[in-house]
Write a protein that binds this DNA or RNA. Structure first.
Length: 420
RNA sequence: GGAGGGGUGGCCGAGUGGCUAAAGGCAGCAGACUGUAAAUCUGCCGACGUACGUCUACGUAGGUUCGAAUCCUACCCCCUCCA
């Protein structure tokens, strides 16, 4: 199509958020003619969202920034069914209490990215359990079930994949797309919602809703999907040593979140800046042209901006400052993870490997020992060789603190604690 | 309900009585090289003990055996086909 005219679509396309759209021109016209409401659904399968969800969240944020109304749909109802998309195996059934707890955790993140309230472009949050829980089987089947063709559903990737691999697909899961389609219609009725967005794996489910709206009420609904974001090396984004990169700081501290972005691969920097920050495109063009070591500046900018969005400006500044002191000055920085030992323990001396474990830099004594033997541990930047070396008062620098490091990136502080 | 197949370490996946803490791959960690990047090479990769060692582990619970992931029994779960 020709260039979109609406602010919303222009932004979405220029920044790399668009994968597929059911009718880009008509959607563009709708967005030009006034405020639209759009939604994305999030199932409550974990108690925090992670960076894999960030593309969707940023979509809603841009929607709001360009004058439209975002709807966050919590899948309190659909989580009980389980989305087969992109899954090789049947999902475990989650209990109602699990779902409620997960929903509470997920809400925390949205409060940071969107502004909620009663205003015209304020975001709203709804829970599909509100209507799905009340559905009656036979009436639902007669009214909505007849609009779904099993022939077509069998062709959907989410279903086809399972069948081709001869993996089980339960009837429960098979119904997921019907419920998601119904959600869209319900939101259109309740909130005047005309657009559903989501990851590319949601295409089939989204189109199902668009079709249902047309068939039942002749509504013009739109679907738009975002690309699956992988790193340049092809890995699914958002894994670290500890696991997923969570958005909630009780699952992943802001400092580690910052580090995640700081360690972006060179070839991903420009793309990530466009997707995960709100820096002007001209600025991003400049940053991604930096070469070699200079590109590290762009990575810091990325880390600062992304962390500020998720954890706030102050947390981003702290993380950046901690990183600067630690990596660029090789010094001690407040803000690193800290362990304390009693003065009496220092007096006796503590075996080095125990300190490494206590600092959370190794999972077991054996691992800590191996790390030290392999020359992977440094005490105040001096490589350690003896895992039995005693850490004592003498190792504490000014301020009564010492730094212990594993590898180039993981650091912790050790200091004297108050007598227990 | 019937017949058959299967449950092994974070994941995939070998292994059908001792040589198996369990091949191989992936993921991960460390070292070298660097730019807190990527790629490459090297080493590590159940827990505990400074090594020889001990313990825990192959769906669960028992049993056979000097010795079991491997054999037997019961149970649980999953898959395929048939009804």
């Amino acid at each position: 199509m020709t260039q979109p005219r609406s602010e919303f679509l222009k932004t979405v396309i220029d920044r790399g958020f668009l994968h597929q759209c059911t009718d880009l021109e008509a959607l563009d016209a709708a967005a030009m003619s006034g405020r639209i409401a759009a939604y994305i659904g999030f199932d409550c399968t974990a108690d925090s969202l992670h960076v894999g969800n960030l593309v969707s969240i940023m979509m809603l944020r841009w929607l709001q920034r360009t004058g439209h109304r975002p709807i966050v749909l919590m899948g309190g109802g659909t989580t009980k069914v389980g989305d087969p998309s992109g899954k090789d195996e049947v999902r475990k059934l989650l209990s109602e209490t699990d779902i409620a707890r997960n929903m509470a955790g997920i809400k925390l993140a949205f409060a940071k990215f969107l502004s909620f309230g009663q205003g015209k472009t304020d975001a709203v949050m709804v829970n599909n359990a509100d209507w799905l829980d009340r559905l009656e089987y036979i009436p639902f089947l007669r009214e909505y079930g007849r609009h779904f063709s099993v022939n077509r559903m069998l062709g959907l990737d989410s279903v086809k994949l399972r069948l081709e691999r001869e993996q089980p697909l339960t009837f429960l899961e098979f119904n997921y797309m019907i419920l998601q389609a119904y959600d869209f219609l319900e939101l259109a009725r309740r909130q005047g919602c005309v657009l559903q967005m989501g990851g590319s794996d949601q295409w089939g489910n989204i189109v199902g809703g668009v079709d249902l709206g047309r068939r039942i009420e002749d509504r013009a609904l739109f679907g738009l999907t975002t690309p699956l974001i992988t790193t340049a090396s092809g890995a699914k984004m958002g894994k670290t040593a500890q696991g997923a990169v969570w958005l909630n700081d009780d699952r992943l501290p802001a400092y580690d979140y910052w580090q995640f972005w700081r360690n972006t691969e060179d070839s991903d920097v420009g793309r990530f800046l466009r997707l995960f920050t709100e820096l002007p495109l001209a600025e991003i063009d400049r940053l991604e042209k930096l070469r070699g070591q200079e590109l590290n500046e762009a990575k810091k900018t990325l880390a600062n901006a992304a962390t500020a969005l998720c954890h706030g400006e102050a947390a981003a500044r702290d993380a950046a400052e901690t990183a600067r002191k630690t990596f660029e000055e090789g010094g001690l920085a407040e803000g690193l993870p800290t362990v304390t030992f009693a003065a009496a323990q220092f007096a006796q001396g503590i075996e080095a490997f125990r300190v490494v474990v206590e600092a959370g830099l190794a999972k077991s004594n054996g691992e800590a020992r191996r790390l030290i033997r392999q020359g992977g541990v440094r005490l105040n930047d001096a490589v350690m060789t003896d895992e039995m070396q005693k850490i004592t008062h003498r190792d504490l620098g000014a301020g009564g603190t010492l730094k212990i490091s594993v590898g180039g990136k993981r650091h912790a502080l050790v200091r004297i604690g108050l007598p227990a």
